[in-house]
Amino acid sequence: MKYVDIEAVEPGDILGKTIYAVNGAVLLSSKVQLTVFMISTLRRIGVTNVYIKDAGMEMEEQEEILSEETKVGLIKQMSETMDSIRSGKDLNSRAISLTIEDLLFDVIRNKDVLVQLNDIRTRDNAEYIHAMNVCMLSALLGVSLQLNQVQLKELAIGALLHDLGKPDLEANGENDEPKRHTWRGFELLKAKREFSLLIAHVAFQHHEHVDGTGEPRGLIGDQIHLYSRIVAVANTFDNLLASGGEGAGGLLPHEACEQMMAMSGTSLDREILVHFMRIVSIYPNGVSVRLTTKETGIVVGQHRGLPGRPIVRVLQRESNDSVESREIDLAKHTTVFIEQVLG
């Protein structure tokens, strides 16, 4: 697969990753052949990049942390939860809890798989994809930090619902600046007796900074609960991928990781960042790269514990005009580095 700009997609290209609708249903399945109408529709609903299958760059099927069933369930649950908040209805805490149990089952089973956040966002599904990504990343960090099962479930519920205050403010015509939506999310979750108060504190504190410059209370270091410090890291990463943190085009994973390391000890907890860098794929499969050998290729494989040393497949044109491919494992070729990410 190749990760490409929607403007580079042509009719006849084969979609490499499923795209989900806001209710969790499949909007377009992977392996579907794209038509002019489909491409036009994807542009209209806000899709900017997609994964396309490339016959010349076939790779092993990417191992996913979450199953498609779990993803569909999470997106559907978030859609129903946010609709309940906007309409003033009560949250279905049991349904949320069961959805989180499915996520934790997948996360614990696949805890050694490097994170590659490659689900395609549209204008309508973006907030649900964000909640799912933050929840999955936070749970993986919790596993890495050796939290117990009760703690993992509290952390995951808090992570999934960390932005719960936003739709409530929108429904009342108010803005969603961090100080306001964190307070509102805290109040909504605190009222749910089925949930631990620590879950409410995730919504309350996920915009706090360890140096005391965050919102809403300016807490410092360990004054911020561990769950909230974990969710802050996950939330920052997904926001940087989605919009670069400035509402513009999103950053590539290696750019987001560099920016987050610059936040170590100020906005973000240093120890949690160390764990984060062990679980995330800096150069995801499907990304085009240029090596220091001046060869270009596509990342096709990963190494747990060596996220910056993936396997790259390069194409070589032979003298008879045939094209041959070979793989360069950067974990073995220690003098070869990725010089530039091309897209």
Rank of each mutant, 00 (worst) to 15 (best):
Y3C: 01
V4R: 04
I6A: 09
L15W: 01
A21E: 06
A21G: 12
A25C: 04
L28W: 11
S30E: 15
K31H: 07
K31P: 00
K31I: 02
V36S: 07
V36I: 05
S40D: 09
I45L: 04
I45N: 03
I45K: 12
T48F: 06
N49M: 11
I52A: 00
G56S: 14
G56R: 13
E61I: 03
L66M: 12
L66G: 14
I75H: 00
E80P: 03
M82N: 04
D83T: 04
S84L: 03
K89A: 08
L91N: 03
S93D: 10
A95W: 14
S97V: 12
E101K: 10
L104C: 15
D106P: 09
D106E: 05
I108W: 02
R109Y: 14
R109G: 13
V113F: 14
V115A: 06
Q116M: 05
D119A: 10
R121E: 02
T122C: 06
D124A: 15
N125Q: 08
A126H: 08
H130F: 11
V134G: 01
A139I: 01
L141W: 15
N148H: 06
Q151N: 08
K153W: 13
E154T: 03
A156H: 04
I157T: 15
L160P: 02
L164G: 02
G165D: 11
K166Q: 11
P167D: 03
N172L: 09
G173C: 04
N175Y: 07
E177R: 13
R180S: 07
H181L: 05
H181A: 11
T182C: 10
G185M: 12
F186H: 13
K190T: 10
A191D: 12
E194M: 09
S196M: 00
S196R: 07
L197T: 05
V202S: 12
Q205M: 07
Q205A: 02
H209K: 06
V210F: 06
G212N: 06
G214C: 02
E215H: 15
R217H: 12
L219Y: 07
L219H: 03
I220E: 13
Q223Y: 12
Y227W: 01
I230Y: 14
V231Y: 07
V231P: 08
A234N: 03
T236H: 12
N239F: 00
S243R: 13
G244E: 10
E246M: 06
G247N: 14
G249R: 03
L251F: 02
P253T: 02
E255C: 08
R270W: 15
I272K: 04
V280D: 12
I282M: 15
N285K: 15
S288D: 05
E295P: 09
G301F: 03
Q302C: 02
H303V: 10
H303C: 13
L315Y: 00
N320P: 00
A331R: 00
A331C: 14
K332P: 00
H333P: 09
T335H: 05
T335D: 12
T335Q: 11
V336F: 06
F337V: 06
F337I: 14
E339P: 02
V341D: 01
